[in-house]
């Protein structure tokens, strides 16, 4: 294991966590979308680096998908939604940024603790990668939980998924990675379409999930 390759992979994964943190403290939708594009870019770099390190050309496909789809198409689409709905300036944190950051730090610590218990047999690159991936996943989930707006929730979900891709590509020789990333892209497309033109817009005036609550079953 080359020291440099390890360091670069480590650095890329670590910066993905960092970008996740950046996402956490964005309180405006438009800037959040920008940061997410950055998130996707870092992921692309990371995946590409893994493809290079592992000599796994199919991972380049994943990297391409991540770049084209997540760093370009989705942010553009989301920006259009946000502008169209006129909510690009809206603040939608449920808890304060400080609190969210604190929670995020806690989560990262948790994922480190959990992953460092993994015995030394596992290869260190993968281990570190996994800890970072877990952090990204947890931070994405935290984001989904602390945001009220559907767009930011989607972004949370996508960064969660970025964490998954990071983990999958970090797992050396894992089959089906490309398929999985495709499947997830489709999933996200569904969600975005759902918000954008499918039923949510058709039926609800705002994409704020609270508006949906009016139609929860059983409440007369």
């Amino acid at each position: 294991m080359n020291k440099l390759t390890f360091d670069i992979a480590h650095m890329l994964a670590g910066s993905l966590v960092l970008v996740s943190f950046m996402q956490l403290y964005q309180d405006r939708l438009s800037s959040l979308i920008n940061i997410f594009a950055l998130h996707a870019l870092v992921l692309t770099a990371s995946v590409a680096w893994q493809a290079f390190v592992q000599h796994a050309p199919h991972l380049y496909i994943t990297a391409t998908i991540a770049f084209v789809f997540k760093a370009v198409v989705i942010p553009v689409a989301l920006r259009r939604i946000v502008v169209k709905l006129g909510i690009h300036r809206e603040l939608d944190n449920v808890v304060g940024v400080g609190l969210a950051m604190l929670a995020g730090i806690g989560l990262v610590a948790l994922s480190m603790v959990v992953m460092l218990r993994v015995t030394a047999e596992a290869d260190p690159l993968a281990r570190e990668d996994l800890a970072f991936a877990l952090s990204v996943v947890l931070l994405g989930l935290l984001m989904m939980v602390t945001r009220r707006n559907a767009v930011s929730q989607v972004i949370g979900f996508m960064s969660l998924e970025n964490g998954l891709v990071l983990a999958a590509t970090g797992a050396k020789g894992m089959p089906l990675v490309v398929e999985i990333s495709v499947a997830f892209s489709v999933l996200i497309a569904f969600i975005v379409i759902g918000i954008f033109l499918f039923r949510i817009r058709e039926r609800f005036d705002t994409v704020d999930i609270q508006a949906l609550d009016r139609f929860r079953g059983e409440r007369q």
Binding site: L138, M144, V145, R216, E218
Partner: peptide, 16 residues
Amino acid sequence: QFLTIRRYLTLVFMAL
């Protein structure tokens, strides 16, 4: 029964 999706997600998150 009457929570928002976000709160349900919070439940999942907490469980995790």
